[in-house]
């Protein structure tokens, strides 16, 4: 029996117009429930690869299949609707909307896309996530009144609230010291393990390679 795949890229080629950069991936697969790291130097295409998997970018050639869907064949609206249902995104610096309190930041995806319905169950889930991540009693705080660590956890809760099958993290440990980087990594690993999710995390921190089931090394636009 074939192992179910979370991500399958086949003969993918992508370039940013005339910028000269070109990412080429003959074949890359991520098993469901796996924790995969994407490492490599700056400018090698790590974030581009994440964009292709998230459906934010469309390959010039090849196929991108995520959770059984050929997302490269969907139109813009279709990819966005697919993304909000299936992918959780964690960004570098953990950006939050500064005029929304913690719990409103968590449910933000539900306010931005009609494919998601904000109901009582979502509010309960958001509150539970914040509690699980150690933010009990701080649901109503604006980001300015949260510590850096608390902000990171709100951003992670936002990525998890839609119950996606795939969590994509784009260099979430950049700029953090070793202790904090380890803490973020542990938080993400714990979250995906508890939910049976797949994690694809871009990092240039080779120290973290041991925390992944598999690591994709990119260098100069090709693995």
């Amino acid at each position: 029996m074939t192992e179910p795949l979370a991500v399958r890229l086949d003969e993918v080629g992508f370039s940013y117009g005339d910028a000269g950069f070109r990412l080429t991936l003959p074949a890359w697969q991520v098993a469901r429930g796996a924790r995969v790291g994407v490492v490599g130097p700056s400018g090698c295409g790590k974030s581009t690869l994440l964009g292709l998997v998230a459906g934010e970018l469309v390959p010039d050639t090849g196929a991108v299949e995520v959770a059984g869907t050929r997302i490269d064949q969907l139109d813009d609206g279709g990819r966005r609707a697919w993304r909000v249902r299936n992918v959780g995104l964690v960004f570098q610096d953990f950006p939050l909307v500064d005029y929304l309190d913690a719990v409103h930041n968590v449910v933000l995806p539900y306010r931005l896309h009609g494919a998601l319905r904000l109901d009582a169950a979502v509010w309960d889930r958001a509150a539970r996530l914040l509690d699980e991540l150690g933010l009990a009693g701080k649901h109503g705080r604006l980001p300015a009144r949260l510590s850096q660590g608390e902000r990171q956890r709100v951003a992670i809760a936002r990525a998890l609230v839609t119950e996606p099958s795939l969590l994509l993290a784009d260099e979430p440990t950049t700029g953090l010291d070793a202790a904090n980087a380890d803490a973020v990594m542990a938080l993400l690993a714990q979250a995906v393990a508890a939910r049976g999710m797949t994690l694809v995390m871009v990092t240039h921190d080779h120290r973290l390679e041991g925390r992944f089931d598999d690591v994709l090394h990119l260098s100069g636009g090709a693995p």
Binding site: E56, G77, R80, R83, V84, L89, F91, P95, L96, V97, D98, L108, P109, L112, H113, A115, L116, R158
Partner: peptide, 14 residues
Amino acid sequence: EITLMRRIGASRGT
């Protein structure tokens, strides 16, 4: 803020 919203699901119209 706008970039973040676009990346987590907001269309240009939203």
